[in-house]
Structures are given as structure tokens and as C-alpha cells.
Design a binder for these strands. Structure first.
Lengths: 114, 114
DNA sequence: TTAGGAATTGCGAATTTACGCAATTAGCGG
DNA sequence: CCGCTAATTGCGTAAATTCGCAATTCCTAA
């Protein structure tokens, strides 16, 4: 089995998350499964574009899809995607609130970050 | 102040993390500040390439740099980048084991792949 | 001041990714 | 079967990333 270095996989994961539409989809799906139609209504994107981004998320096994009649319903596929999004939000709020650099710097230098 | 939607910022963050070299740098810096020279020795990349990736991390305030004599030392800049990397590792581990389960299940039940 | 290493920056070429239109598949109702 | 909505796929082009070479900056030692 050709082993892919973990950091390669990690980079790939982040790269796949690196698009606004895909982030929106994942965030919306955190509240439970949702048909494409609703995703389409909630996100500012054209049907074709949404499909393509959903395909990316599907191929990387971050979401699952199943038909229900004439509509297709998407859902988060297991793994803790939520943790990632949460960590991202945490980091961003820190950065956006910005000027508490003092605090983070203190915490950082204190421990020597081991 | 022109507010950037949070999901845009989040996507941007992930996009910036989405490169093997940048991931490696962040992981290495988790053990403490490190001069470029050492990063260069530890990562398989050319000086010019490393500089460019370091520039990306600098511009997005994920790392800081300061000169120490003739060398430049990089360090993680505050925020909980570590949390992100940890969450990513967790998700990847789940995913990889999950793929194995799926694979064995496929081999056990049917040979058909449609 | 000059030589040299360390690190960065400025392009240009090559690769990758995103977007939109047209065409296609799939289910539902008349 | 036919028409219609939902969703996806196939391309071609536009836009963004990446990478390496050459040139530049900054520091140190002679």
C-alpha cells in the first residue's frame, strides 16, 4: 500500500476545505441533513457550481448523499468535521479580536510551546 | 469597517493551510521557534520555495519572524494553530480507518462495484 | 571596502482550480 | 410516452497557485 505522508493528507484536507461554498455547506449540514434545494436557497451559488463543490466533498468523503424521491439529501459523513470548523472559528475570532496579541503572546512564550 | 463574512475568512484560512510545505513548517514550529536554515534542512524544498511559503504564513499572521544576526528565526504567532492541526489529524485518522473498514466490507460482501 | 552566505523578492512558465453554459440523467405527474 | 423539475456531468475558458531562476537585501568576517 503506497503510504501518503500524513502532512500531505493534512494539506489536502485543508485545501479541500478552502472554499467559501464548501465551508457554507459543511456549516449548514452541521444542523442535520439537508436537500440540495435548501442548500441552494441558503448559499449564493448557481446549481451547477453547488453540484461541483458537493462532488468535491463527496469524493473526499466529508459528506454523503442519498436520493429521496426526486431530491437528493446531503449529510455530514461521520468524522469530526465540526471540530475542524470549531478550531478554525476559535483561531479566527482570536485573530479578528486581534489586539489581544498580548495575551496569546504571553501564553505562547510562557510555555516555550513544547 | 467592511466586514468579511466569517465563512469567507474560514475558507481563506483553510486555503492558506492547504499546502504540504506550509503544514510541515507549522508542525515543526510547534516544538518552538526555529531558524530558516533548520526548516530548510528538515523540509524537502528549495530555499526560494520555502521563503515564499513562509511569506504566505507571515502575511496571514500565522507565524512571526525576527532576525537574529544573519539568520531569521520563525515562530508560531499566538492563535491556536495547534488545535487546527490536531483536529485535522483526528479527522484523518478516523477517515483512514473508516476507509479500511469500507474496503474490507466491500471485499467481504460483493465484488460488484456497480 | 569587499567577499560570501543567508534569506527574500521579482518575474515567467507550467500546472491546478473555479466558473458558466450546454447537455444529460433521474424521478414524478398528467 | 411526454413534459417538467431536480441534480449532475462534460467541456472550454478565465483565474489563481506553484515553482525555479535570476537579482536583491541584509548581515558578518576578512
Amino acid at each position: 500500500m503506497m503510504s501518503v505522508p500524513l502532512y500531505e493528507a493534512k494539506a489536502e484536507l485543508f485545501r479541500l476545505l478552502g472554499h467559501p461554498v464548501r465551508i457554507r455547506v459543511l456549516e449548514l449540514l452541521q444542523d442535520g441533513p439537508m436537500p440540495v434545494r435548501e442548500l441552494l436557497a441558503a448559499i449564493e451559488v448557481e446549481p451547477t457550481g453547488l453540484s461541483q463543490h458537493l462532488a468535491v466533498l463527496r469524493r473526499s468523503s466529508m459528506v454523503t448523499a442519498h436520493r429521496d424521491g426526486s431530491t437528493v439529501v446531503y449529510a455530514l459523513a461521520g468524522g469530526d468535521v465540526a471540530d475542524l470548523l470549531r478550531a478554525a472559528r476559535k483561531l479566527l475570532t482570536q485573530k479578528l479580536t486581534g489586539q489581544n496579541e498580548l495575551l496569546t503572546e504571553l501564553l505562547d512564550t510562557e510555555t516555550g510551546v513544547r
